[in-house]
Design a protein around this nucleic acid. Sequence first.
DNA 1: AAGGCGGGCAACCGCTCGAGA
DNA 2: ATCTCGAGCGGTTGCCCGCCT
Length: 313
Amino acid sequence: MGRPPCCDKEGIKKGPWTPEEDIILVSYIQEHGPGNWRSVPINTDESMAIDELKLHAGLMRCSKSCRLRWTNYLRPGIKRGNFTAHEEGMIVHLQSLLGNRWAAIASYLPQRTDNDIKNYWNTHLKKKLAVANSTNSISSGNNRHPIFATGSSNNQPEITQMAAIARRSPFADCPSSSYASSMDNISKLLDGFMKTTSPSPPPPPLQHYDVGYDDVKPAVENPLMSFDCMSGTGGGEMDCFDVYHHHQQQPASSFMDQYGGYGGYGEESKKMMNHQAPPLSSIEKWLFDEAAAEQVADLMDLSDGCCSVPMMF
DNA sequence: AAGGCGGGCAACCGCTCGAGA
DNA sequence: ATCTCGAGCGGTTGCCCGCCT
């Protein structure tokens, strides 16, 4: 007897997004910014300008669907494709600390979406950890990370879970072949869209940040939008861990303010910073700590079968 | 070559939270 | 203080694609 689904209304489209829909959504967000999702499909009423009416004709998606599509796929700065060993380690580590709070975990990997992380956990890491767990029964005492010695982690699982990630990612950088995973396709479509559509002046350039580079600078390559950092080269090649390592000198809030602005991750991060247990300041210290970086690297280098993995699932 | 099967991932659903009235 | 509603989150589903037989 719950609330009816927001997409139950007639005429609201569901299912896979088409390139045209992506273009419409990106165009809308470019002009209005992310957020106010409710208004995306609704703004097709008479209050809209003529151009906007044209722009949104055909985007019959509910607000949820629009938000999801943007945050999980279209949002600039998303790194797609294979997870690095460092990213795996981060995910395993953070999952052991935070549980299945994928949004919170994603806030520590700004280039990855919560959906991506969730899927990767469910399809890859869970199996790896299960295999490691089933083949090993070594006790975990020696692997406890100092972070759990603070007395604030009453119910924390063993940090040694992360040691179960024993292999470096065997995958190569190869984007998926389907439309939905092809940033090139969208970029080209958007480029073509701008060349072939309305004679009205082009909207102002959308800025995005090359997360992980030395200075946070707006990267304006495509007048409409730039996806370069998602495609496996450029910014996408930088490990998330490098990002954190690089920013360890900065206050976390500053880092999140700079990088978390898109798609709501910044807000989640701020919540994490300010309110939520476990004590993330400690976690952050550890994550940002150079020595910890080496420790993670060491753990990631461990071969299969050398560590215990007391799992919770 | 064709059909079956399983893995991976995009997208949906339902719930919770929080802001504003 | 309470209610309403939008935003966001996590769990789950279903489709697509590649591999195997």
